[in-house]
Simulated assay, not measured.
Amino acid sequence: MAELNDASGKGQTRGPLFYIGAAGLVLAMGVETLAVLGRHAGIPLLGALELIQACILLMASAAMLSATMNNGHATVTLLTTRVSERARQYLHAFAHLLSALFFIGLSAGALWLLLETWNDYEQSELLHIPFRPLRIVSFLAAVAIAFVFLRDMWRSLRGRA
Rank of each mutant, 00 (worst) to 15 (best):
E3L: 14
D6A: 01
A7L: 11
S8G: 03
S8P: 00
G9V: 02
K10F: 02
G11D: 13
R14F: 03
P16T: 14
L17A: 06
F18Y: 15
I20L: 15
V26K: 09
M29S: 15
G30N: 00
V31Q: 07
T33C: 12
A35Q: 11
L37C: 07
L37T: 06
R39G: 05
P44F: 02
P44Q: 02
L49V: 13
I52S: 10
A54S: 13
I56H: 08
I56D: 13
I56T: 15
M59W: 12
A62D: 09
A63P: 01
L65R: 09
S66K: 15
S66N: 15
N70I: 02
N71V: 04
G72C: 01
L78N: 12
L78R: 12
T80W: 06
Q89S: 09
Q89L: 06
Y90R: 09
L91V: 04
L91T: 04
F94V: 07
H96K: 08
H96A: 07
H96W: 07
L97R: 08
L101G: 01
L101R: 02
L101M: 08
L106E: 03
A108R: 10
A110G: 06
W112R: 13
W112F: 10
L113Y: 15
T117I: 00
E122C: 02
Q123E: 15
Q123D: 12
L127D: 11
I129G: 05
P130D: 09
R135L: 14
I136P: 05
F139E: 03
A142H: 05
A144V: 02
A144D: 07
V148N: 05
L150T: 00
R151H: 10
L157R: 00
L157N: 01
R158G: 03
A161G: 15
